[in-house]
């Protein structure tokens, strides 16, 4: 249990429990409180995921804005008997059961997928043509070769295979514990190196592999993960302006295509927000209800 894990569990508990509390609470105001707890914890999770800008936005907009808006709604509509509108217990059970079913479905899906393999597959690293693999292998150090092809020696190859800083040591240990076998094996048709069966990679291992292949300039593929975690405000800002320095600064050659940013969606969303603002104001404006309209 590292500090990271501890913090994660605390925040996860806060988020999940807060959400469940929102469901279970019948008082609207308390629901709002638990919502704030849940959203805040989620923001913490975002920090934990190195998404500092998103987390800050979450705090500002959700916790600071949306929830306040909701509480305004509560205050404007909560009159006497309607503050507590109870759902029937049977309903709660039925929907709770359904919710549990859905959750288990999600759980089954989440645990049923080898996310490490999947992410490597996304980066085209799960299967590599034999010629390219062997070309790259020529330049590899002995430690790397062992890691890739799985010689049974337990030598401390961590020096060469240590690309990351903050959690490297633990990861490397885990790597040696779990990935004793080879990462890649030659396919049956002897043309492609594939990730070994039942191979579960830690984040560190995966990052290492990605870095290993990225170090090869012939591999014209952007890196999966920026090496410098956090500090996302600036790249996000650039991407909203249409530039992607987080991707294009490390690209293989000057001839490669530039990545696309989010200028147009950004503009669309801004216009959308304006329209929503006007629309909301229109909808919420005070109406004089005439007696004739009442039916």
């Amino acid at each position: 249990m590292t500090a990271h894990d501890v913090i994660f569990w605390i925040l996860a508990l806060g988020a999940g429990a807060g959400a469940i509390a929102v469901v279970l609470t019948q008082n609207v105001v308390r629901m709002a409180f638990w919502l704030v707890v849940s959203l805040g914890s989620t923001a913490g999770l975002f920090f934990l995921l190195h998404a500092d800008f998103v987390a800050a936005t979450q705090l500002l907009i959700y916790v600071g804005g949306t929830v306040v808006l909701l509480i305004f709604g509560v205050m404007l509509t909560a009159r006497g008997p309607y503050v507590r509108i109870r759902s029937s217990t049977a309903e709660l059970f039925v929907s709770g059961g359904l919710g549990l079913l859905v959750f288990f479905m999600f759980y089954a899906a989440i645990t049923g997928v080898d996310w490490n393999r999947s992410t490597l597959a996304v980066a085209d690293l799960a299967a590599i043509p034999r010629d390219r693999f062997e070309e790259r292998l020529d330049d590899a150090t002995a430690a790397e070769r062992e890691l890739l092809l799985g010689h049974a020696e337990h030598e401390p190859a961590a020096d060469a295979a240590e690309p990351h800083g903050d959690e490297g040591r633990e990861s490397t240990a885990g790597h040696h514990d779990e990935a004793a076998g080879p990462f890649y094996v030659l396919d049956e048709d002897a043309n492609v190196y594939r990730l070994a069966p039942a191979q579960r990679l830690t984040t560190v291992q995966r990052d290492y592999l990605a870095g290993f292949w990225k170090a090869d300039d012939r591999m014209n593929r952007p890196p999966g993960i920026d090496k410098r975690e956090g500090g996302t405000a600036r790249p996000i800002g650039f991407s909203f302006l249409g530039a992607r320095p987080d991707r294009d600064l490390g690209r293989a050659s000057a001839d490669a295509k530039l990545s696309t940013g989010y200028l147009l969606p950004f503009e669309i969303v801004s216009v959308h927000l304006l329209v929503v603002l006007i629309g909301a104001a229109y909808l919420a404006r005070a109406k004089r209800r005439k007696p004739a309209d009442e039916t």
Binding site: V94, S95, L98, G99, L101, V102, M105, A109
Partner: peptide, 11 residues
């Protein structure tokens, strides 16, 4: 509920 049920049934 129907939506949730539908998603579940699809799975």
């Amino acid at each position: 509920m129907f939506i949730a049920l539908g998603v579940l049934s699809l799975f």
